[in-house]
């Protein structure tokens, strides 16, 4: 057996104790809308599972059913219903709301849904009234449309002229983005590893000189740059993963 291979490292076992690789996480930047962190000491499959789950399997709340009582705007009912579905709602309390399919009610009830109403009419002459997510009145103060910053205008739903009216009842439900992207909790996730392409998981196309033509990765400083003519180690595994979740 090759003496260089450390069995304890591969197996994660020492006697009866789990001493396997313990993943590390380091947050570089944190705001209300963005988190940048580095995950290390784990495998690509774990990092990728984390990324996939953040995109598609974290439950959130979004408008799922729309009852249109009155729509005299220029937009079609379906059009408005679709726009309502995409409005981001505060999903901090998503855990306390049941999935409708797990609920005992037949269609929806306060345990598995939140009701919202939109009731706007334009009465002024020569004015275009903007209907935004700020006009949505929620029955539950925990589940409300969210805005970036205090003075944000809200999400535009429709524009009304004099005499036009919208009277809509919306039912917001819990779901995951696997079913529909409106339930996705994040906008984008940047995921990067191996900034110097040491593992040769990718091949850079170039005209004359690879180093001149390709910009350096922003996280490149985090890992040592390979020296010129370093032999390729095909046993290397990625170990540091850079995330940026919006």
């Amino acid at each position: 057996m090759n003496p260089q291979i450390d069995l304890t490292d591969r197996n994660g076992l020492q006697g009866d104790k789990w001493v396997g690789p313990k993943p590390e996480i380091k947050i570089q930047d944190l705001t209300e809308e963005n988190i940048r962190f580095t995950l290390s000491n784990t495998d690509l499959s774990m990092a990728n599972a984390l990324r996939r789950i953040m995109i598609s399997e974290v439950p959130t709340i979004a408008i799922d059913m729309v009852e249109i009582e009155l729509n005299t705007s220029v937009l079609a009912d379906e059009f408005i219903a679709h726009r309502l579905g995409l409005i981001p709602l505060d999903s901090t309390e998503a855990e306390k709301i049941k999935y409708t399919r797990d609920c005992s009610c037949s269609q929806y009830c306060p345990i598995c849904s939140v009701e919202m109403t939109l009731n706007v009419k334009c009465t002024q002459e020569n004015v275009t009234k903007d209907v935004t997510s700020k006009d949505l009145i929620s029955s539950d103060p925990r589940v409300v449309p969210i805005y970036s910053g205090k003075n944000a205008p809200g999400v535009l739903i429709a524009k009304l002229r004099k005499g036009q009216e919208l009277k809509i009842k919306c039912i917001a439900k819990k779901g995951v983005a696997k079913e529909h992207a409106k339930w996705s909790p994040c906008a984008a996730i940047a995921f990067e590893y191996d900034p110097h392409n040491r593992l040769r998981h990718t091949e850079y196309w170039f005209e004359e000189d690879e180093k001149k033509e390709w910009p350096k990765s922003k996280v490149g400083a985090e890992e040592p740059e390979p020296s010129e003519g370093e032999p390729f180690d095909y046993n290397l595994k990625p170990n540091k993963f850079y995330f940026n979740v919006e």
């Binding site: 994660g12 789990w18 396997g20 313990k22 993943p23 590390e24 996480i25 995950l39 784990t42 774990m46 984390l50």
Partner: peptide
């Protein structure tokens, strides 16, 4: 083992 790793990650 995966569950242990994930719960460790969560604590971290």
């Amino acid at each position: 083992d995966s569950i242990a790793e994930v719960s460790h990650l969560r604590a971290k």
